[in-house]
């Protein structure tokens, strides 16, 4: 209670300061706006565009981008049965985002927990966790996912789980390494000399030191998972039709690359831009979360 009273600025000032930081950084501001747009599409896309995205219209088949003729829905073109690409893109934003966010969130939660145990405890538990980690890491992510998806039936739930397991090792490794490093710092020894319990040390000293690294890792992993999900869908074992995802859209456009390039291009671009924006914003967050680096943002 004491620490929040006067020293920390209110939410309003924080938001204003954040906007000022974005205003002086056009690149980061663009990335931020793009992510906002993706989130908006994930929320508002399915209720508003689900019907138009699935509407088959043979009069409007194979329209190239910038076709405003039947209606603005065809701005990004349409496929061979006349479904507008723009609407399909907006609708599938939700599943794409959810799959990668949930997968990485699961992976991070389990990974940080196991990493903390391995870093703080040592002994048999740590050895066991790290050997499992080694086993997971010795498999290429996609190969592991493909193997697992051949064993279990492919559905949105299993795709999420498989992606989460395949990226688990990275979170464990990073957390453990960082924990072991921070644990040896003099200010942690000072805390032990005061008589602090391990729980206190973890909460007050370890986690704040971990957060900037984890934020960056989280963003990079969401981007990576998004691409991995696309690859799985592309080779046909990820999200199954009639489900939709950007990766699946890229896959479905594969046969038409020579004639209707826009079918794969727009979802591909959306994936790349999302990944890029996440990394840019995460980088900014990392600086903002470090009290020693924060001043750089105020210039």
């Amino acid at each position: 209670m004491t620490e929040t009273e006067t020293a920390t600025p209110g939410l309003r000032q924080r938001v204003l300061a954040g906007l000022a930081i974005l205003a002086s950084r056009p690149g980061a501001a663009l990335a931020f706006l793009y992510l906002l747009a993706v989130v908006a599409a994930a929320i508002a896309g399915p209720p508003f565009f689900a019907d138009s995205a699935e509407a088959i219209d043979f009069k409007a088949r194979n329209l190239p981008p910038l076709s405003l003729e039947p209606s603005w829905h065809y701005l990004l073109g349409s496929d061979s049965i006349g479904r507008p690409s723009l609407d399909r893109l907006l609708v599938s934003a939700r599943s794409t985002l959810l799959i990668s966010l949930v997968a990485v969130a699961l992976s991070a939660a389990a990974g940080v927990l196991l990493g903390l145990v391995a870093g703080l405890r040592g002994g048999f538990a740590a050895a066991a966790i790290m050997r499992v980690c080694d086993a997971l890491m010795s498999f290429p992510t996609l190969l592991l996912a493909i193997l697992l998806l051949y064993v279990v039936k492919s559905s949105v739930g299993t795709v999420v789980l498989v992606l989460a397991v395949s990226r688990l090792a990275l979170f464990i490794r990073v957390t453990r390494a960082e924990t072991a490093e921070v644990r040896g710092r003099v200010y942690v020894t000072a805390s032990r000399a005061i008589g602090a319990r391990p729980g206190w040390i973890t909460r007050v000293h370890l986690l704040p030191a971990l957060v900037p690294t984890l934020v960056t890792l989280f963003a990079v992993e969401v981007a990576f998972t998004m691409l991995a999900e696309s690859s799985l869908s592309f080779i046909g074992i990820g999200v199954q039709p009639p489900g939709v995802s950007w990766g699946l859209m890229v896959a479905q456009g594969r046969d038409y690359l020579a004639t209707q390039w826009w079918l794969s291009f727009w979802p591909g671009l959306a994936i790349v831009l999302t990944a890029l924006s996440l990394v840019v914003v995460a980088n900014l967050m990392k600086t903002a979360l470090d009290p020693r680096q924060k001043w750089r943002l105020q210039m």
């Binding site: 004491t2 620490e3 003099v186 000072a190 000293h205 470090d290 009290p291």
Partner: peptide, 11 residues
């Protein structure tokens, strides 16, 4: 090294 960079002096 002995003061945490993440905490305010009050903390």
């Amino acid at each position: 090294a002995s003061l945490s960079p993440h905490l305010t002096v009050e903390d």
